[in-house]
């Protein structure tokens, strides 16, 4: 029971980071290969605060988010102002992610590569679940406001968006800060769930997992990435019995999604009762038509 409980808590924590990243990648259209760095910053900031300075948990989480947000400004100012295009920007984030990890490995307060043990266990499943729901709700509101719509406009056609009076830099920067703060929150929750963190937990493998969850879950969708990250974490756990095949299955899922639904599981849609009933109606209509012939 403890085991399932733990897997579910990790899923909730990663949902927070993935949904944040979906604002940046899925809705604003910029790819990041370094968002694990924001999780690392949130994790270390909050863990150091609760461990060394006995700051209350929620306040430490908040400060971790703020720190991640501030650091994202350092990444965003040079790259977004220069309007780096897709792949160039992704490479910049890759370098950024590695740089943050190396810095964490060399600071004395983070205890370097040995990591920080003995962090208090504050993130129980209910806590993680509440934060996941809260972030999904806030993100939905964000997307359905002028901020989110402007981000979509920038993704769809940046030239037209600029000609419609939308400041590209501001919109992209806001999305980056938002996603970084979500990452920081997820990192803080993660540190207080595992009770131990070390820099090697936040490598580009984690960044890639987040980005592939957004792409496989569906660009321009919130619920899609939520489903995808849950799948990405749950399936390898289910397959622990067939240890050798775990990573094969993981790759296979990605390939199958890309082949059968190139725009992601829920690309440009949200999972809702309305959407399900529409799909269902379409299918029954097709079947009825088939019988007629």
């Amino acid at each position: 029971m403890d085991y399932i409980y733990g897997v579910m808590a990790v899923i909730c924590i990663e949902i927070v980071a993935t949904v944040g990243l979906s604002v940046f990648t899925g809705f604003t259209g910029l790819f990041s290969l370094g968002h694990a760095a924001f999780m690392a910053i949130g994790a270390y900031t909050s863990a150091i605060l609760t461990y060394f300075y006995h700051v209350p948990f929620v306040l430490a989480l908040l400060l971790g988010m703020v720190m991640a947000g501030l650091v994202s400004l350092i990444l965003g100012f040079p790259t977004l102002r220069a309007k780096l295009r897709g792949d160039y920007f992704a490479i910049a984030t890759l370098g950024f992610g590695e740089a943050v990890r190396v810095i964490l490995e060399n600071l004395s307060i983070t205890q370097g590569a040995r990591g920080l043990p003995g962090i208090k266990h504050f993130t129980t499943l209910p806590v993680a679940f509440i934060f996941a729901v809260l972030v999904v709700w806030l993100t939905k509101n964000f997307i359905w406001s002028k901020f989110g719509r402007n981000a979509i406009a920038v993704r769809e056609d940046s030239v037209a968006a600029e000609m419609a009076g939308i400041d590209l830099f501001k919109v992209r920067m806001l999305s980056l800060v938002y996603s970084a703060m979500c990452g920081g929150l997820a990192g803080g929750l993660f540190a207080h769930y595992l009770n131990f963190i070390q820099p090697v937990m936040f490598t580009s493998i984690l960044s890639t997992q987040l980005t592939s969850a957004v792409v496989a879950g569906g660009m321009g969708s919130i619920t899609g990435p939520v489903l995808a990250i849950a799948l990405f974490i749950a399936v390898p756990e289910v397959l622990r019995v067939a240890n050798m095949w775990r990573l094969v299955a993981y790759g296979l899922i990605l390939v199958l999604i890309m082949v059968f639904r190139p725009s992601g599981i829920m690309g440009y849609h949200e999972l809702s009762f309305e959407w399900i009933s529409k799909i269902f109606k379409k299918n029954t209509r097709n079947k009825a038509g088939g019988k007629g012939i």
């Binding site: 719509r149 979509i152 406009a153 769809e156 056609d157 030239v159 037209a160 968006a161 000609m163 321009g220 440009y268």
Partner: peptide, 9 residues
């Protein structure tokens, strides 16, 4: 000249 709309909206 070549239409630029916000296609997915």
């Amino acid at each position: 000249q070549n239409i630029r709309l916000f296609n997915k909206l």
